Amino acid sequence: MSLTGPIILIDDDLDDQFVIKSMLEDLALPNPLRLFQNGQEGHQYLLTTIETPFLILCDVNMPVMNGLELRKEIDADPYLKNKAIPFVFLSTSANKETVENAYKGTIQGYFKKRERYDDGKENLAMIIKYWKSCLHPNSFK
């Protein structure tokens, strides 16, 4: 994890991508944003990038490879698992079964997308502040 590394946003909804991107821009973070429309695209990026991502924000329900499948792929790959990139679900899907399934893997949070822009921005600010303050296995590299 690099505090100034890119934030990875994986979400198939282009409107949600736009809104989350706008929220992150409003927060004036130094982190670049990398956008992907499904888990397979995000997975390919993680396998091939030379960047050290700061955080993964991932939707749950997506075509091709959903967020739960992506998390399983990361956990199953020693190279990706060793990167220890914080993985946070950000989704409109917030039912008990989905949340329980998400926490069967190694995730670092599950948040419901907020309906109001300011609430969503505040939520993102809280997530990012936490991870910028938190000690992490890669904090010592």
Rank of each mutant, 00 (worst) to 15 (best):
T4I: 13
T4H: 11
T4L: 15
T4E: 15
G5D: 13
I7K: 05
I7W: 14
I8R: 01
L9S: 06
I10L: 10
D12C: 12
D13E: 15
D13P: 06
L14Y: 14
L14K: 15
D16P: 01
Q17G: 05
F18I: 06
F18D: 10
V19P: 00
V19A: 04
I20P: 01
S22V: 04
S22W: 02
L24V: 07
E25R: 06
E25W: 09
D26I: 03
L27K: 11
L27C: 08
A28F: 05
L29A: 06
P30R: 15
P30L: 14
L33I: 15
L33G: 04
L33K: 02
F36G: 04
F36K: 03
Q37Y: 15
N38L: 05
G39S: 00
Q40H: 10
E41A: 10
E41S: 07
E41K: 12
G42Q: 08
G42M: 09
H43F: 11
H43R: 06
Q44F: 07
L46C: 03
L47W: 01
L47N: 12
T49L: 06
T49C: 09
E51Y: 06
E51D: 15
T52Q: 14
T52F: 05
T52W: 07
P53A: 11
P53I: 14
P53E: 12
F54V: 04
L55C: 05
L57F: 08
L57M: 12
C58R: 00
C58N: 11
D59C: 05
N61A: 09
N61Q: 14
M62K: 00
P63I: 13
P63M: 13
M65Q: 15
G67M: 08
L68S: 02
E69P: 00
E69G: 00
L70Q: 01
L70G: 06
L70T: 06
R71C: 14
E73S: 11
D75E: 15
A76Q: 14
A76W: 03
D77Q: 08
P78W: 08
P78A: 11
P78L: 12
L80R: 01
K81M: 09
N82W: 12
I85K: 00
P86D: 10
V88A: 07
V88Y: 12
F89Y: 15
L90D: 00
A94N: 12
K96G: 00
K96V: 06
E97C: 02
T98N: 07
T98A: 07
T98K: 04
V99Y: 04
N101T: 14
N101F: 01
N101D: 05
Y103Q: 05
Y103L: 07
G105P: 01
T106W: 04
T106A: 03
Q108R: 10
Q108M: 09
G109Q: 05
G109E: 04
Y110K: 04
K112M: 10
E115C: 01
E115K: 14
Y117I: 10
Y117N: 00
D119M: 10
G120L: 07
K121Q: 14
N123D: 12
L124T: 06
A125D: 15
M126C: 03
M126D: 10
I127F: 12
I128F: 11
I128K: 01
L135I: 13
H136M: 12
P137H: 12
N138P: 02
N138K: 15
S139I: 09
K141P: 03
